[in-house]
């Protein structure tokens, strides 16, 4: 059973943390994850990438927090959440927070929640694929794409 909480403390200079997760929700599944990263030393780096695909009535809850404390000079933190909502009744709740106490750092987060691109689906169907297979291909592309 994958954990619902990921906590990373970057306490030594130049430590790097990379968190990558893919979630697929179907039917009435309720997925959730909390990701907390604390930068407490200089030149630490964190990279978080979460991809979510939801079908049917699945829901996803995300609590993200990047905290950069006073000692974490020149650190970099990034958080990306990409969600693809395919079902009619899906729901995403996301709170990606940034708490920054040092001004020499570079931190950002990006969240995008989107639907299927019907033009892409149409293109694949016009090439002879069934709709479900077309959706599968698009989802695979979504999950594999590197930011």
């Amino acid at each position: 059973m994958p954990s619902k909480e990921i906590k990373v403390n970057l306490d030594k200079a130049k430590e790097t943390a990379k968190v990558e997760r893919v979630f697929v929700g179907r039917k009435n599944e309720e997925l959730e994850i909390d990701i907390h990263i604390v930068h407490n030393a200089r030149k630490t780096i964190s990279k978080v990438l979460v991809k979510v695909v939801l079908y049917d009535n699945a829901t996803f809850r995300f609590n993200g927090r990047i905290r950069v404390l006073k000692k974490a000079h020149l650190s970099e933190g990034s958080l990306r959440l990409q969600a693809l909502l395919i079902g009619d009744n899906c729901r995403v709740f996301a709170e990606p927070a940034l708490e920054i106490e040092n001004n020499s750092v570079k931190c950002f987060h990006k969240v995008s929640i989107s639907k299927l691109n019907e033009e892409e689906i149409f293109y694949l169907i016009s090439k002879g694929l069934e709709r479900d297979s077309a959706i599968d291909l698009v989802v695979q592309g979504f999950v594999r794409a590197q930011p």
């Binding site: 940034l98 950002f108 969240v111 929640i113």
Partner: peptide
């Protein structure tokens, strides 16, 4: 379609 970007 919801997009969000923050940077500090």
């Amino acid at each position: 379609q919801v997009a969000h970007e923050a940077s500090v």
